[in-house]
Nucleic acid binder design. Structure first.
Length: 533
RNA sequence: GCCUCCGUAGCUCAGUUGGAUAGAGCAGGGAACUUCUAAUUCCAAGGUCGCAGGUUCAAUUCCUGCCGGAGGCGCCA
């Protein structure tokens, strides 16, 4: 990689003048083209320790590098307060193209920063007593895409869904189903949604409402998730922990480590010792478990299976973060190994009017409703376009009615256009030749180079997105790539009277590299890559 | 009161370990199709990066305080 060449050259230049090079020399792509292809602020960063003026150090670096030109470097200049700017021969981009084309979708922008470490990503974990609703959708799309990113950078990823399949909520659910089955109203505090009535009608007369309802809800979850390409590796049952006794084991361990205590007839977790603002009840004075006890047992179990856990929660569960980390620390785990990501809430609007997520009758906008309305690809993309740190407002009319203005279509349209151009070239007698037989150096149009520059940034973008758990970075990048492609497509014909056969071949490979980059993005985002639209 | 997130163009949002003249989309203004999909492209316009301090050669970015918005703080889950 050219960045390695430049870093090495900078390091040598610093050493030659007696300055200790930093461990990681920072290279960046200047925002402005006149600042060259690559830039380093290393002179600014090291000047102080070297006891030199940044600009003078930068000038000295440039003199050395000018006399000892690294590969690809056409020119090197000092600018501003001491930036060292490199201008490269276009051939570096031709080499990028060759590398991308030979790597293909599987290998391009696939990294090994994870080193094969096992990692567990738990997300959604909605109660198995109702269909998934709109509130689950953001966490679902985000969690799955984070898992895809981690997989791409070399982690062994397990997607896990925790099922709260016992307790008060499940009993109320069963009673509500049974009541509807008898043609009665659900009990006090029961579930009022229309889906209860629908499911009750499906339920056989001799079915156990709890077991049947549980299975029905689970099937509903799986069906909805499969529509947007989400599959879980593990569905972990809370009940299974009661059966296996690990909840009691966990409580015993907490007691043994003296991080729990009994007061007022209840058992408490001494979470204030670990930064919580109050201690939390594990076992109520009536002997019933709080939600916390099984949850701690569950995370204890996950740690027995994985060295690293990621949980994705909605904003309404953020209070849970401190106490769960406290519990894990109390059990002897490094709280850093339990990473909890919070997704902020989503407001749905229709024509500027807020859509109520759940009404008095217990009805709500379901995840399925959204997929029905805008389709799976738009659903995923609209949730992934934006950082989960910000509250999101989605106008369903805007994303469905004005589909033409939707970024999803903009990016997918690029994919379709590429396939169209390839088909056209083949029909006009220009099947693509093997890469080795094609001269890529004929790609000199600014649009071509711009597209190649864009493609070249995908590996670092994937690495960043994975590290930051930020799929929206990929969504934004794919938009930029599509823009670079559309610009190229507009100005550069692949086949035409003014286009030589050699140039057609080189451009066909440029299309191939663009397809590869798009395919990587589509995979990470979980959307489809249409060959025509 | 405490905790989390947010505050950047008219609107929705990016902004990569702090970097050069802060970027996109949409809306609004002006252009471009005899050839591969105009679901496109190009040009112009649009900014007190909430406010005030601090650290730094350099702050939208880091720190502190304040203002504003959202959410959470139960022997509910």
């Amino acid at each position: 990689m050219v960045t390695e060449i430049l870093k090495k050259a900078l390091s040598e230049a610093l050493s030659s003048m007696g300055v200790e090079p930093p461990v990681d020399i920072h290279l960046e792509r200047p925002a402005r083209r006149e600042h060259g292809d690559w830039s380093s602020s290393v002179a600014l960063a090291t000047a102080k320790n070297a006891g030199k003026n940044p600009r003078e150090l930068g000038t000295a670096l440039v003199e050395y590098l000018d006399a000892n030109r690294p590969e690809y470097v056409l020119g090197v200049a000092v600018a501003g307060p001491g930036f060292v700017n490199f201008t490269l021969d276009d051939s570096w981009l031709h080499h990028v193209l060759a590398e991308v084309a030979s790597a293909g979708v599987d290998k391009f922008a696939r990294l090994d920063t994870g080193g094969g470490q096992a990692i567990n990503v738990e997300f959604i974990s909605a109660n198995p007593n109702k269909p998934l609703h709109a509130g689950h959708a953001r966490g679902a799309c985000y969690g799955d895409s984070v898992a895809r990113l981690l997989d791409r950078v070399g982690y062994e990823v397990t997607r896990e869904f925790y099922l709260n399949d016992r307790g008060v909520q499940m009993n109320l659910f069963a009673e509500s189903l049974a009541a509807r089955k008898r043609g009665e109203e659900p009990p006090e505090g029961g579930y009022q949604g229309a889906y209860i009535t629908e499911w009750a009608a499906e339920m056989p007369d001799d079915a156990d409402p709890l077991e049947w309802g549980y299975a029905r809800a689970l099937a509903s979850h799986k069906e909805t998730l499969s529509r947007v390409g989400i599959e879980f590796d593990v569905w972990f049952s809370e009940r299974s922990m009661v059966a296996s006794g690990v909840i009691d084991e966990t409580l015993a361990e907490l007691a043994e480590k003296e991080v729990s205590f009994v007061d007022d007839g209840a058992t408490w977790l001494r979470s204030t010792d670990y930064g919580d603002d109050k201690d939390r009840v594990l076992v109520k004075s009536d002997g019933e478990l709080t939600y916390l006890a099984p949850d701690i047992a569950y995370h204890r179990d996950k740690f027995s299976r994985f060295p690293k856990l990621i949980n994705i929660f909605g904003a309404d569960h953020h209070g849970y973060v401190v106490r769960m980390k406290a519990a894990m620390q109390a059990l002897g785990h490094d709280p850093e190994d339990l990473e909890i990501r919070i997704t902020q809430l989503v407001d749905l609007e229709r024509g500027g009017e807020t859509v109520r997520m759940s009404g008095r009758a217990g009805d709500f906008v379901s995840f399925d409703d959204i997929i029905d309305e805008v389709g799976p690809d738009v659903t995923r993309l609209m949730y992934l376009m934006q950082s989960v740190d910000t509250r999101q407002t989605i106008d369903l009319d805007a994303v469905s009615n004005q589909a033409a203005d939707n970024p999803v279509f903009y990016v997918q349209y690029a994919n379709a256009r590429i396939h169209s151009a390839i088909r056209n070239a083949a029909e006009k007698g220009h099947p693509r030749k093997p890469l080795a037989d094609v001269d890529l150096s004929v790609l000199v149009h600014e649009r071509e180079l711009e597209l190649l520059r864009a493609i070249s940034t995908l590996p670092e973008t994937v690495e960043h997105a994975a590290n930051e758990r930020s799929p929206h970075t990929i969504a934004g990048w794919s938009r930029d790539l599509a823009a670079a492609f559309h610009g190229f497509y507009h100005d550069c014909y692949v086949v035409g009277d003014d286009v030589s056969a050699e140039l057609t071949q080189a451009r066909l490979w440029l299309l191939e590299a663009t397809l590869i980059a798009l395919a990587v993005c589509f995979d990470l985002l979980g959307v489809s890559a249409p060959e025509s639209m």
